[in-house]
Computed example of a mutant assay.
Amino acid sequence: MNPLLLPLVAAQAAYVHRTIGKEPRPEGPTNGFVPGPAAGATENRPETMRLLVIGDSSASGRGAPTHDLAFAGSMARAIAARTARPVQWRAMGKYGATSEKIRHGILTEVRGEWDLAVLLVGVNDILARRSTTAWATDLTAIVEALQQHAAHTVVPGIPEFDAFPSLPRTLRRYLAERGAALDTAARLVCAGRTSVQWVSSAELGPAEPSFFAADGFHASPAGYERWARAITDHLDL
């Protein structure tokens, strides 16, 4: 981007920061269970899949009234529908969290073993103007730690900012450029790790207005459902 436009970008970013993120926190438990189809005798029922969703405000469910209608619950239902397995899920997210804050905060609270961990992160790193090097360093540490807890880890690509209705055009362009740079680094971090998969946000396709919550920034329940389904469709389950 032309450096002369950076002051405008900074002003637009400050305005957006003051006006977005007003969606209330979702109510209800941060964990749940999606039953699989009835399978007769207990010994013939499929094994329950354990799903952990960890990350920023998307993991914390901003934009949805409950966690069940946010990303974690939506992902659990998508997995259950595809695999015919029951899914036990948990959401661990924090509004405004960068990869650094997740690494040194939320990640330290992860316990137990999981079949699948989904890491939602990157947007706040861009908004905080963190360097690609810092992003890659923290992301590597997070992924390596999750590999100790989860059989499979998924890192979805950063959402395409061009579709965000709450963002001014110049700011969208700047954030999209930064997002592409961080996505490139994320692909390199995930490459070569047999239990880690990066999934491009381009798999979502064009985002319709119904994808977004009222603030035009976070996903709505319909958006979370579509996002989770798109990721699930590209997993090796």
Rank of each mutant, 00 (worst) to 15 (best):
P7W: 13
V9S: 02
Q12N: 10
A14R: 14
Y15H: 13
Y15V: 13
R18Y: 03
R18N: 15
I20G: 12
G21R: 04
R25H: 08
G28L: 01
G28D: 02
P29T: 01
N31K: 14
F33S: 09
V34E: 01
P35D: 07
A38H: 01
A38M: 00
A38Y: 03
A39K: 04
A39R: 11
A39M: 04
A41R: 00
P46R: 03
M49Y: 07
R50D: 12
L52R: 02
V53N: 03
S58K: 04
R62G: 03
A64L: 01
P65H: 03
T66F: 09
H67S: 04
L69E: 15
G73W: 03
S74M: 07
S74L: 04
A78E: 06
A81F: 07
R82N: 00
A84R: 13
A84G: 07
R85T: 00
R90Q: 14
M92A: 14
G93E: 01
Y95F: 13
E100D: 13
K101G: 07
G105I: 14
E109Q: 15
V110N: 09
E113K: 15
L119C: 12
V121A: 15
G122I: 08
V123I: 12
N124A: 01
I126T: 05
R129W: 15
R130Q: 15
T133G: 05
A134I: 09
W135L: 09
W135D: 04
W135N: 06
L139G: 05
T140V: 09
A141M: 06
I142P: 10
L146T: 02
L146Q: 03
Q147D: 12
H149S: 12
H149F: 10
V155E: 00
G157K: 04
G157P: 03
I158G: 11
E160Y: 14
P165Y: 06
L175S: 13
A176N: 12
R178D: 13
A180M: 06
A181T: 05
L182I: 13
L182T: 08
T184F: 04
R187T: 12
R187E: 10
R187L: 05
C190Q: 08
C190D: 03
G192I: 08
G192K: 10
R193Y: 00
R193L: 14
V196T: 05
W198E: 03
S200H: 14
A202H: 11
L204E: 05
E208L: 14
S210Y: 07
G216Y: 02
G216L: 07
P221F: 00
P221C: 01
G223Q: 03
Y224I: 02
W227H: 08
A228E: 05
R229H: 01
R229Y: 04
A230M: 07
T232S: 11
T232C: 12
D233V: 10
H234C: 09
H234N: 13
D236R: 08
L237E: 03
